[in-house]
Design a protein around this nucleic acid. Sequence first.
RNA 1: GCGUCGGUGGUAGAGUGGUCAAUUACACCUGACUGUAAAUCAGGCGCCUUCGGGCUACGUAGGUUCAAAUCCUACCCGGCGCA
Length: 389
Amino acid sequence: MQFSIEKKSGHARAGEIVTPHGTIKTPAFVVVGTKATVKALTAEQIRSLNAQVVLANTYHLYLQPGEDIVAQAGGFGPFMDWQGPTMTDSGGFQAFSLGAAFGNNVSKVATGDEIEDTSQVVGQLAKVTDEGVEFKSHLDGSKHLFTPEKSMEIQWKLGADMIFAFDECTSPTAPYEYQKKSLDRTLEWAKRSLARHEALDTEKKQALFGVVQGGRFQDLREEAARTIGALDFDGFGIGGSFTKDDIGTAVGWVNALLPEDKPRHLLGIGEPRDLFDAVEVGCDLFDCIAPTRMGRHGTLHTKEGRINIKNAKFIDDFTPIEIDCACYTCQHHTKAYLAHLFRAEEMTAATLASIHNLHFILRLVEQMRESILDGSFPEFKKEFLEKYY
RNA sequence: GCGUCGGUGGUAGAGUGGUCAAUUACACCUGACUGUAAAUCAGGCGCCUUCGGGCUACGUAGGUUCAAAUCCUACCCGGCGCA
């Protein structure tokens, strides 16, 4: 993998990542295909959206169908008929989603109303120890130990171009002491991930990204950026919990310390406002389930903000979601039709909504890139956010 | 015509003297969702309210009772059976 920066505008940067399966123009939005499928979409539809990269998940593919099956298919890309660049997440996020967050209605993006919970270590389906994370399968309750080594081995078989070190995604409900402890552990895991990966991938086929944690605490974020940043990773992921109204600030602390010449992937962030803030402080890659999940739930992006297509007012609205949108959905269908499909619980609703939302976000990040290249990023951001509620 | 069973909120369908403005489901109205446990979840859903409560409601009209969706009478409507 090769990364180069073409142009900078402040801290924002436009660049290129060359992978064995094609070049990614950055900043770029990575489409999430957790189980080797972008929910509700065919590979052909993903291509027609001009998506550049697809990210799948180690934990999910390990459980089903198993990494060996994926390896037999030639990797998760070929398995799902995606020929372009690929990534896999390490399973570290599931330490949170199946652990502290499970059943607790907690988002890693904190609203500020969260109550501190000191019982972090023992979650519902994930238990974190220094050795690794012990998962209880959400599918059948069986137990599985994920270690940094194990994650590297699975990701090796899944065969993505870019992979992540095994980390612990912490909860915003975790107190400082726990975040600190977890950070030390994630650093150890980063070293172990590196060591195992180097042993497996002697030909340097896969790029390995280290993950910066630290929650909402500046000193921890900076410590993580320094220590993880000093290791021999090909790029960096910025993960963990954030404060809803100020993701940009925390990411800024980190990017100020990470090496300039390696790509920075902000993990799991995808709200338009957050993307602008993150690009502004120098992030290159993003992935997020929001466009597809929200789409399936009837929430659609427009330049004026989100709409809920299930609202009564759209039942007889025979205009597209956005009159000037170039996506397949807007070119062919009306809000009234989508409202009908959602009410009738027709599967096509999920497909059409996902197409629109992904098109919206992919195009938005693409426009950010264009504006960096022509020097108009600050104006583009300002104009967009003035209209977007 | 006789007999019999039944008529409950948008729908289906609980309740069968007080704890019932009435279980539940669906429908309907909103909201949430940020490295996918998610085609999911949460709230609302008679009218009014100074949030204490007040008012009108369980086919219609009466009645019994301190108290009725629940008991009685008549009528109206529907299913079934017999003529």
